[in-house]
């Protein structure tokens, strides 16, 4: 038990863990907006008048939701060099998350848009608002309000998934903890990392719970 929580080792590993935590935050600040951007783009494309575009969006989102993100990441990191394209771990993370989490965000946003009664856009269109104006001023605000808990929940998942970056040598929290573990032959840094993840995400879980409670009565 004392092996599992060796305060001395954790203290010695602390600078590494701290840098890892900051890297995890920076990585999240990169991949969350990317995923959201892809999600919005796909959701908007899914309202296209062209059937080919709508089917394309469905095919795309289904493909990347079926594809395990870890496999996608390793494929990009280890497979692309054989195609003559060598990308760093961060770039591979950015691409993989753009594809994978973008598809999840897209489904959430699309569900929100579909939950807005068609009469809302019809009223706006009948007043002379254009397609894009109607989306921006009427549909999206109502859609996002309805799916805010799902968006937050999805974002939590994305932040947790940034630990995948440890397999492509991005020095984020899990990677640093494993480095410290192999240097010290002691699992305490991993334990410390687990605590850090939980402490960092706890407030967001609390916020999520409040959002869900607020949303519940109107459902």
């Amino acid at each position: 038990m004392s092996d599992f929580f060796d305060a001395g080792i954790i203290l010695a590993a602390w600078p590494m863990l701290w840098r890892g935590l900051l890297t995890t935050l920076a990585l999240s600040a990169l991949v969350v907006p990317l995923g959201l951007a892809a999600g919005f783009g796909l959701a908007l494309l899914s309202t296209s008048r062209s059937r080919a575009v709508r089917w394309g969006v469905i095919g795309w989102t289904d493909l990347f939701r079926a594809f395990p993100p870890l496999v996608l990441l390793i494929l990009l990191y280890g497979g692309l060099p054989f195609a003559g394209l060598e990308l760093g771990g961060v770039a591979c993370m950015a691409i993989a998350f753009f594809l994978n989490t973008g598809s999840y965000y897209s489904e959430v946003i699309r569900a929100g848009m579909e939950s807005v009664p068609p009469g809302q856009s019809e009223a706006a269109r009948s007043l002379g608002l254009g397609t894009w104006q109607t989306l921006r001023t009427i549909v999206l605000p109502q859609a996002l309000r309805r799916v805010l808990p799902d968006l937050v929940s999805n974002t939590l998942e994305v932040v947790k998934l940034t630990s995948l970056a440890s397999v492509v040598a991005v020095p984020e929290l899990l990677y640093q903890a494993r480095q410290a573990q192999s240097l010290t032959y002691n699992p305490s840094p991993i334990f410390a990392a687990a605590v850090l993840y939980a402490v960092a995400l706890w407030p967001f879980v609390k916020i999520l719970r409040r959002l869900e409670q607020r949303a519940a009565p109107s459902r």
Partner: peptide
Amino acid sequence: RQRIGMVFQSFNLYPT
């Protein structure tokens, strides 16, 4: 459409 107003059975006011 600005010259043609429309009123619906279900009002369709913006709830927010």
